[in-house]
Protein backbone atom coordinates (compact mmCIF):
# COMPACT_ATOMS: atom_id res chain seq x y z
CA UNK A 1 0.00 0.00 0.00
CA UNK A 2 1.50 3.26 -1.04
CA UNK A 3 0.43 6.65 0.15
CA UNK A 4 0.15 9.45 -2.38
CA UNK A 5 1.87 12.58 -1.20
CA UNK A 6 -0.86 15.03 -0.28
CA UNK A 7 -1.27 18.35 -1.99
CA UNK A 8 0.50 20.90 0.22
CA UNK A 9 -1.91 22.82 2.43
CA UNK A 10 -4.74 20.36 1.69
CA UNK A 11 -5.41 19.70 5.38
CA UNK A 12 -5.74 23.39 6.14
CA UNK A 13 -8.14 23.84 3.23
CA UNK A 14 -10.31 20.94 4.38
CA UNK A 15 -10.35 22.24 7.94
CA UNK A 16 -11.31 25.71 6.78
CA UNK A 17 -14.18 24.45 4.69
CA UNK A 18 -15.38 22.21 7.53
CA UNK A 19 -15.35 25.18 9.87
CA UNK A 20 -17.35 27.19 7.36
CA UNK A 21 -19.93 24.42 7.10
CA UNK A 22 -20.35 24.22 10.86
CA UNK A 23 -20.74 27.92 11.51
CA UNK A 24 -22.74 28.70 8.43
CA UNK A 25 -25.17 25.75 8.44
CA UNK A 26 -28.84 26.78 8.41
CA UNK A 27 -29.70 24.36 11.26
CA UNK A 28 -27.39 26.24 13.58
CA UNK A 29 -28.86 29.61 12.69
CA UNK A 30 -32.43 28.38 13.09
CA UNK A 31 -31.67 26.83 16.45
CA UNK A 32 -29.93 29.95 17.63
CA UNK A 33 -32.90 32.14 16.69
CA UNK A 34 -35.34 29.67 18.24
CA UNK A 35 -33.44 29.58 21.51
CA UNK A 36 -33.17 33.35 21.53
CA UNK A 37 -36.91 33.61 20.88
CA UNK A 38 -37.80 31.39 23.83
CA UNK A 39 -35.49 33.35 26.06
CA UNK A 40 -37.11 36.60 25.01
CA UNK A 41 -40.57 35.14 25.66
CA UNK A 42 -39.58 34.43 29.27
CA UNK A 43 -38.28 37.96 29.73
CA UNK A 44 -41.41 39.35 28.07
CA UNK A 45 -43.67 37.27 30.33
CA UNK A 46 -41.83 38.42 33.43
CA UNK A 47 -42.09 42.01 32.30
CA UNK A 48 -45.82 41.69 31.52
CA UNK A 49 -46.43 40.04 34.88
CA UNK A 50 -44.71 42.85 36.71
CA UNK A 51 -46.56 45.46 34.62
CA UNK A 52 -49.96 43.88 35.22
CA UNK A 53 -49.44 43.51 38.95
CA UNK A 54 -48.08 47.03 39.16
CA UNK A 55 -51.07 48.56 37.33
CA UNK A 56 -53.44 46.43 39.39
CA UNK A 57 -51.81 47.71 42.56
CA UNK A 58 -51.53 51.31 41.35
CA UNK A 59 -54.72 52.46 43.07
CA UNK A 60 -53.50 51.09 46.40
CA UNK A 61 -50.02 52.52 45.80
CA UNK A 62 -51.59 55.91 45.08
CA UNK A 63 -53.71 55.73 48.22
CA UNK A 64 -51.21 54.35 50.75
CA UNK A 65 -47.80 54.67 49.06
CA UNK A 66 -45.66 51.66 48.14
CA UNK A 67 -43.45 51.75 51.22
CA UNK A 68 -45.85 52.97 53.89
CA UNK A 69 -48.13 50.09 52.83
CA UNK A 70 -45.34 47.75 53.84
CA UNK A 71 -44.85 49.22 57.31
CA UNK A 72 -48.52 49.68 58.24
CA UNK A 73 -50.51 46.89 59.78
CA UNK A 74 -54.08 48.20 59.53
CA UNK A 75 -56.26 45.80 57.56
CA UNK A 76 -59.81 47.03 57.76
CA UNK A 77 -61.84 46.68 54.56
CA UNK A 78 -64.86 48.33 56.23
CA UNK A 79 -62.94 51.57 56.78
CA UNK A 80 -60.93 51.23 53.55
CA UNK A 81 -57.66 50.95 55.50
CA UNK A 82 -55.00 48.57 54.28
CA UNK A 83 -51.41 47.83 55.29
CA UNK A 84 -49.36 44.67 54.77
CA UNK A 85 -46.95 44.60 57.68
CA UNK A 86 -48.72 41.83 59.56
CA UNK A 87 -48.88 39.52 56.55
CA UNK A 88 -45.26 40.18 55.71
CA UNK A 89 -44.33 39.27 59.27
CA UNK A 90 -46.63 36.24 59.08
CA UNK A 91 -45.00 35.07 55.86
CA UNK A 92 -41.45 35.52 57.10
CA UNK A 93 -42.19 34.01 60.51
CA UNK A 94 -44.00 30.95 59.19
CA UNK A 95 -41.31 30.35 56.55
CA UNK A 96 -38.50 30.80 59.06
CA UNK A 97 -40.06 28.40 61.56
CA UNK A 98 -40.72 25.94 58.74
CA UNK A 99 -37.08 26.07 57.65
CA UNK A 100 -35.86 25.64 61.23
CA UNK A 101 -38.08 22.59 61.64
CA UNK A 102 -37.37 21.12 58.21
CA UNK A 103 -33.60 21.50 57.86
CA UNK A 104 -32.45 19.03 60.54
CA UNK A 105 -34.96 16.44 59.36
CA UNK A 106 -34.07 16.93 55.69
CA UNK A 107 -30.31 16.77 56.32
CA UNK A 108 -30.79 13.73 58.53
CA UNK A 109 -32.69 12.00 55.74
CA UNK A 110 -30.10 13.00 53.14
CA UNK A 111 -27.20 11.73 55.28
CA UNK A 112 -29.06 8.54 56.10
CA UNK A 113 -29.78 7.81 52.45
CA UNK A 114 -26.28 8.60 51.17
CA UNK A 115 -24.08 7.43 54.03
CA UNK A 116 -25.84 5.02 56.34
CA UNK A 117 -28.77 3.19 54.76
CA UNK A 118 -28.28 -0.30 53.34
CA UNK A 119 -28.89 -0.21 49.57
CA UNK A 120 -32.27 -1.96 49.83
CA UNK A 121 -33.71 0.64 52.22
CA UNK A 122 -31.97 3.53 50.49
CA UNK A 123 -34.08 3.22 47.34
CA UNK A 124 -37.36 2.92 49.23
CA UNK A 125 -36.70 5.94 51.42
CA UNK A 126 -35.50 8.08 48.51
CA UNK A 127 -38.54 7.12 46.45
CA UNK A 128 -40.94 7.91 49.29
CA UNK A 129 -39.38 11.33 49.82
CA UNK A 130 -39.64 12.10 46.11
CA UNK A 131 -43.32 11.08 46.15
CA UNK A 132 -43.94 13.52 49.02
CA UNK A 133 -42.71 16.34 46.80
CA UNK A 134 -45.33 15.48 44.20
CA UNK A 135 -48.39 15.65 46.50
CA UNK A 136 -50.55 18.70 45.63
CA UNK A 137 -50.57 21.36 48.32
CA UNK A 138 -54.37 21.23 48.67
CA UNK A 139 -53.97 17.64 49.87
CA UNK A 140 -51.45 18.75 52.46
CA UNK A 141 -53.95 21.44 53.44
CA UNK A 142 -56.77 18.93 53.91
CA UNK A 143 -54.54 16.64 55.91
CA UNK A 144 -53.37 19.56 57.98
CA UNK A 145 -56.92 20.72 58.64
CA UNK A 146 -58.38 17.33 59.53
CA UNK A 147 -55.47 15.45 61.06
CA UNK A 148 -52.60 17.68 62.10
CA UNK A 149 -54.64 20.60 63.43
CA UNK A 150 -56.85 18.60 65.82
CA UNK A 151 -53.83 16.62 66.98
CA UNK A 152 -51.84 19.73 67.77
CA UNK A 153 -54.86 21.34 69.40
CA UNK A 154 -55.60 18.40 71.70
CA UNK A 155 -52.14 17.05 72.50
CA UNK A 156 -49.31 19.39 71.69
CA UNK A 157 -50.59 22.90 72.34
CA UNK A 158 -51.67 22.20 75.98
CA UNK A 159 -48.18 20.78 76.63
CA UNK A 160 -46.48 23.78 75.06
CA UNK A 161 -48.60 26.19 77.12
CA UNK A 162 -48.06 24.20 80.31
CA UNK A 163 -44.32 23.84 80.10
CA UNK A 164 -43.20 26.68 77.86
CA UNK A 165 -46.00 29.12 78.67
CA UNK A 166 -43.49 31.48 80.30
CA UNK A 167 -42.21 32.26 76.81
CA UNK A 168 -44.22 34.82 74.86
CA UNK A 169 -44.47 32.38 71.94
CA UNK A 170 -46.79 29.87 73.59
CA UNK A 171 -49.94 31.42 74.98
CA UNK A 172 -53.70 31.34 74.78
CA UNK A 173 -55.82 31.79 72.74
CA UNK A 174 -54.80 28.54 71.10
CA UNK A 175 -57.40 26.68 69.11
CA UNK A 176 -55.43 24.92 66.41
CA UNK A 177 -55.61 27.46 63.60
CA UNK A 178 -52.23 29.04 64.11
CA UNK A 179 -48.90 30.18 62.78
CA UNK A 180 -47.34 27.05 64.27
CA UNK A 181 -49.72 24.70 62.47
CA UNK A 182 -49.01 26.48 59.18
CA UNK A 183 -45.28 26.32 59.85
CA UNK A 184 -45.40 22.59 60.52
CA UNK A 185 -47.36 21.96 57.32
CA UNK A 186 -44.84 24.09 55.43
CA UNK A 187 -41.97 22.19 57.03
CA UNK A 188 -43.43 18.89 55.89
CA UNK A 189 -43.84 20.31 52.40
CA UNK A 190 -40.26 21.59 52.07
CA UNK A 191 -38.49 18.58 53.60
CA UNK A 192 -38.59 16.64 50.31
CA UNK A 193 -37.13 19.55 48.32
CA UNK A 194 -34.32 20.19 50.76
CA UNK A 195 -33.45 16.55 51.28
CA UNK A 196 -33.53 15.72 47.56
CA UNK A 197 -31.02 18.45 46.73
CA UNK A 198 -28.93 17.85 49.85
CA UNK A 199 -28.81 14.17 48.89
CA UNK A 200 -27.30 15.03 45.52
CA UNK A 201 -24.80 17.44 47.01
CA UNK A 202 -23.76 15.07 49.79
CA UNK A 203 -23.51 12.22 47.32
CA UNK A 204 -20.99 14.23 45.32
CA UNK A 205 -18.53 14.66 48.20
CA UNK A 206 -15.42 12.81 47.00
CA UNK A 207 -14.61 9.49 48.64
CA UNK A 208 -11.04 10.74 49.06
CA UNK A 209 -12.28 13.41 51.45
CA UNK A 210 -14.22 10.96 53.59
CA UNK A 211 -11.36 8.45 53.60
CA UNK A 212 -8.91 11.18 54.57
CA UNK A 213 -10.87 11.79 57.75
CA UNK A 214 -11.61 8.10 58.38
CA UNK A 215 -7.90 7.31 58.12
CA UNK A 216 -7.17 9.80 60.90
CA UNK A 217 -9.36 7.71 63.17
CA UNK A 218 -12.66 9.50 62.82
CA UNK A 219 -16.02 7.89 63.50
CA UNK A 220 -18.76 7.98 60.87
CA UNK A 221 -20.40 10.77 62.79
CA UNK A 222 -17.19 12.81 62.80
CA UNK A 223 -16.76 12.23 59.09
CA UNK A 224 -20.27 13.54 58.42
CA UNK A 225 -19.92 16.48 60.74
CA UNK A 226 -16.37 17.57 59.91
CA UNK A 227 -15.96 16.60 56.27
CA UNK A 228 -19.22 15.93 54.47
CA UNK A 229 -21.34 18.82 55.71
CA UNK A 230 -18.57 21.45 55.45
CA UNK A 231 -17.64 20.25 51.97
CA UNK A 232 -21.25 20.28 50.81
CA UNK A 233 -22.29 23.42 52.65
CA UNK A 234 -22.72 25.71 49.63
CA UNK A 235 -25.05 23.21 48.02
CA UNK A 236 -26.88 22.64 51.28
CA UNK A 237 -27.42 26.38 51.74
CA UNK A 238 -28.76 26.43 48.19
CA UNK A 239 -31.14 23.59 49.02
CA UNK A 240 -32.37 25.41 52.13
CA UNK A 241 -32.96 28.59 50.13
CA UNK A 242 -35.05 26.71 47.58
CA UNK A 243 -37.08 25.28 50.44
CA UNK A 244 -37.47 28.75 51.91
CA UNK A 245 -38.61 30.14 48.56
CA UNK A 246 -41.26 27.45 48.32
CA UNK A 247 -42.40 28.15 51.89
CA UNK A 248 -42.73 31.88 51.22
CA UNK A 249 -44.92 31.37 48.18
CA UNK A 250 -46.97 28.42 49.43
CA UNK A 251 -50.66 29.35 49.47
CA UNK A 252 -53.41 26.75 49.77
CA UNK A 253 -52.18 24.55 52.58
CA UNK A 254 -51.30 27.59 54.65
CA UNK A 255 -54.60 29.33 54.00
CA UNK A 256 -56.47 26.30 55.28
CA UNK A 257 -54.77 26.09 58.66
CA UNK A 258 -53.42 29.52 59.58
CA UNK A 259 -56.70 31.11 60.60
CA UNK A 260 -56.21 34.31 58.57
CA UNK A 261 -56.23 36.77 61.43
CA UNK A 262 -55.12 40.31 60.74
CA UNK A 263 -52.79 41.05 63.59
CA UNK A 264 -49.20 40.52 64.66
CA UNK A 265 -48.69 38.41 67.74
CA UNK A 266 -45.63 36.92 69.33
CA UNK A 267 -47.83 33.96 70.22
CA UNK A 268 -47.23 31.37 67.51
CA UNK A 269 -50.24 29.37 68.75
CA UNK A 270 -52.52 32.22 67.71
CA UNK A 271 -54.05 32.56 64.25
CA UNK A 272 -52.09 34.63 61.79
CA UNK A 273 -51.97 35.29 58.05
CA UNK A 274 -49.43 35.27 55.26
CA UNK A 275 -49.31 37.35 52.10
CA UNK A 276 -50.31 34.42 49.93
CA UNK A 277 -53.01 33.29 52.33
CA UNK A 278 -54.87 36.61 52.47
CA UNK A 279 -54.79 36.94 48.70
CA UNK A 280 -56.28 33.46 48.33
CA UNK A 281 -58.73 34.00 51.15
CA UNK A 282 -60.03 37.47 50.39
CA UNK A 283 -59.75 37.77 46.64
CA UNK A 284 -63.39 36.84 46.06
CA UNK A 285 -64.59 39.05 48.88
CA UNK A 286 -62.88 42.14 47.51
CA UNK A 287 -66.02 44.02 46.72
CA UNK A 288 -64.57 47.37 45.74
CA UNK A 289 -61.61 48.30 43.61
CA UNK A 290 -59.31 49.67 46.35
CA UNK A 291 -59.69 46.41 48.32
CA UNK A 292 -58.80 44.40 45.21
CA UNK A 293 -55.95 46.77 44.46
CA UNK A 294 -54.62 46.38 48.02
CA UNK A 295 -54.60 42.60 47.60
CA UNK A 296 -52.71 42.93 44.33
CA UNK A 297 -50.36 45.31 46.12
CA UNK A 298 -49.71 42.51 48.62
CA UNK A 299 -48.92 40.28 45.65
CA UNK A 300 -46.48 42.86 44.35
CA UNK A 301 -44.73 43.02 47.71
CA UNK A 302 -44.60 39.22 47.78
CA UNK A 303 -42.85 39.27 44.40
CA UNK A 304 -40.28 41.72 45.70
CA UNK A 305 -39.70 39.75 48.87
CA UNK A 306 -39.16 36.57 46.85
CA UNK A 307 -36.72 38.50 44.69
CA UNK A 308 -34.82 39.80 47.72
CA UNK A 309 -34.68 36.33 49.27
CA UNK A 310 -33.26 34.96 46.04
CA UNK A 311 -30.64 37.68 45.83
CA UNK A 312 -29.66 37.14 49.46
CA UNK A 313 -29.49 33.44 48.76
CA UNK A 314 -27.08 33.95 45.88
CA UNK A 315 -24.89 36.18 47.99
CA UNK A 316 -24.97 33.67 50.82
CA UNK A 317 -24.13 30.70 48.61
CA UNK A 318 -21.36 32.66 46.98
CA UNK A 319 -19.82 33.82 50.26
CA UNK A 320 -20.13 30.38 51.84
CA UNK A 321 -18.54 28.75 48.82
CA UNK A 322 -15.57 31.08 48.77
CA UNK A 323 -14.65 31.04 52.45
CA UNK A 324 -12.24 29.92 53.85
CA UNK A 325 -11.62 26.93 51.67
CA UNK A 326 -10.72 29.03 48.67
CA UNK A 327 -10.73 27.45 45.24
CA UNK A 328 -12.16 24.05 45.76
CA UNK A 329 -14.38 23.88 42.71
Amino acid sequence: MTVEPAEPGLLQKLQASAREQVTGSPGDVVFKLLALGFTLIILLLAGLLLYTVWTGASESIGEFGFFSFIVTQEWNPVFREFGALHVIVGTLASSAIAVVLAVPVALGIALFITELAPPAIRGIVAFTIDILAAIPSIVYGLWGLHVLLPFLDQHINPLLINYLGWLPFFDRPAFGFSLLTASIILAIMIVPIISAIAREVIGSVPTAQKEGMLALGATRWEVMWKVILPYARAGIVGAIILGLARAIGETMAVTMVIGNAHYISANILAPSATMASIIANEFREATYSLYLSALIHVGLVLMFISLIVNILARVLVWSVASDPGGDRR
Binding site: A208, Q209, G212, A215, L216, G217, T219, K226, P230
Partner: peptide
Protein backbone atom coordinates in the same frame (compact mmCIF):
# COMPACT_ATOMS: atom_id res chain seq x y z
CA UNK B 1 -11.39 3.85 64.69
CA UNK B 2 -8.67 3.39 67.33
CA UNK B 3 -6.60 1.28 64.95
CA UNK B 4 -6.61 4.06 62.38
CA UNK B 5 -5.23 6.46 64.96
CA UNK B 6 -2.20 4.16 65.34
CA UNK B 7 -1.85 3.34 61.65
CA UNK B 8 -2.12 6.44 59.53
CA UNK B 9 -2.62 6.62 55.80
CA UNK B 10 -1.67 8.86 52.88
CA UNK B 11 -3.60 8.48 49.65
CA UNK B 12 -2.86 8.59 45.91
CA UNK B 13 -4.29 12.02 45.35
CA UNK B 14 -3.55 14.68 47.93
CA UNK B 15 -6.79 15.18 49.85
CA UNK B 16 -6.45 18.13 52.21
CA UNK B 17 -9.80 19.23 53.63
CA UNK B 18 -10.79 22.22 51.49
CA UNK B 19 -12.86 23.93 54.15
CA UNK B 20 -9.98 23.97 56.63
CA UNK B 21 -6.84 26.09 56.86
CA UNK B 22 -3.37 24.54 56.72
CA UNK B 23 -3.21 24.62 60.51
CA UNK B 24 -6.66 23.05 60.92
CA UNK B 25 -5.82 20.33 58.42
CA UNK B 26 -2.87 19.23 60.52
CA UNK B 27 -4.83 19.68 63.73
CA UNK B 28 -7.87 17.74 62.50
CA UNK B 29 -6.59 14.40 63.77
Amino acid sequence: VLIRRKIGMVFQKPNPFPTMSIYDNVASG
